[in-house]
Amino acid sequence: MSPKTIIRQEEWERRLHDLQVSKNDLNRLVMDYLVIEGFKSAAEEFSHEAGLAAPVDLDSIESRMNIREALQRGDVTDAITRVNDLNPEILDTNPALYFRLQQQKLIEFIRQGKIAEALEFAQEELAPRGEESPEFLAELEKTMALLAFESSPAAPPAIAELLSPAQRLKTAGEVNAAILESLSQGKDAKLVGLLKLLCWGETMLDERAEFPKLDLSAGTFTQSSAQNKQP
C-alpha cells in the first residue's frame, strides 16, 4: 500500500474554513431534521426565529406523530384509522406495510393475553396474507410462535424481541417512512444522511490519508495519531 497522504491540522482547518456553507443552509438542515423527526413545536418556533418556511404543513407533522405514538403505545387500530384519515393510499399501495401493522396488532393481542382474539385475528386476517407471500408467512409463523412460549424467558431472542418496545418502534418507523414518502419527504433526516456520509468518507479517507478527524461530541478535532499505534 502506498504511503498515506498527511494533512496537518492547520491546513485542514484552513480548508474547512474556506468551504462555502451558509448559516441559512445549516438552518434548513436543522429544519428538515425537526420536521422529519416530528418536532412540531420546535419546527414552529424555528420557522419564526430563523425566518424559515417549513417544507411541509406543520399539521401533518402532528398527525404523523400521533400515529407514531399510537403504535408506540400499542394501539394499532387507532394508528390504522389515522393513517387512512391522513391518506388512504398509503396502506392501499403498500401491502407489506399493511401486513406489518396487522402483525403488530396480533402481537398486541398476545401481549395482552387475549389468546382467543389473537387466534381469530390471525386466522381471519393474517393467514390469507401469509399465503400471498412466503415472507409474510415466515413472519406470521414467527409471531405465532409467541403463543407457544407465552412470554416465558426461555423464548429465543428472535421471538421474544417481537414483544419488546423495539418492535413497536420498528413498526412505527416503517409507517412513519411511508407517510413521509407520501409527502415527498425523505425518510431520513438529511442530517442523518450527512452523518452517514461522514462515516463513509472518513473510513475511506482513513485508508489513504492521515487527517484530523471530527470529534462530534466536542465539536473539535482529534489528530489521527492514535492511528499510528495500529500496525
Binding site: T5, I7, W12, R15, L16, H17, L19, V21, D25, L26, L29, V30, L191, L194, L195, L197, L198, G201, E202, M204, L205, R208, A209, F211, L214, L216, S217, A218, G219, T220
Partner: peptide
C-alpha cells in the same frame, strides 16, 4: 465551547473529506 457549532463543523468536515477523496 468551540467557536463553531458542531453541526457546522460536521458539514465542513464532510465536505472537505469528500473533496479530498475525489482528489485522491
Amino acid at each position: 465551547k468551540p467557536a463553531h457549532p458542531a453541526l457546522e463543523t460536521l458539514y465542513r468536515q464532510t465536505a472537505a473529506v469528500v473533496v479530498q477523496l475525489g482528489l485522491l
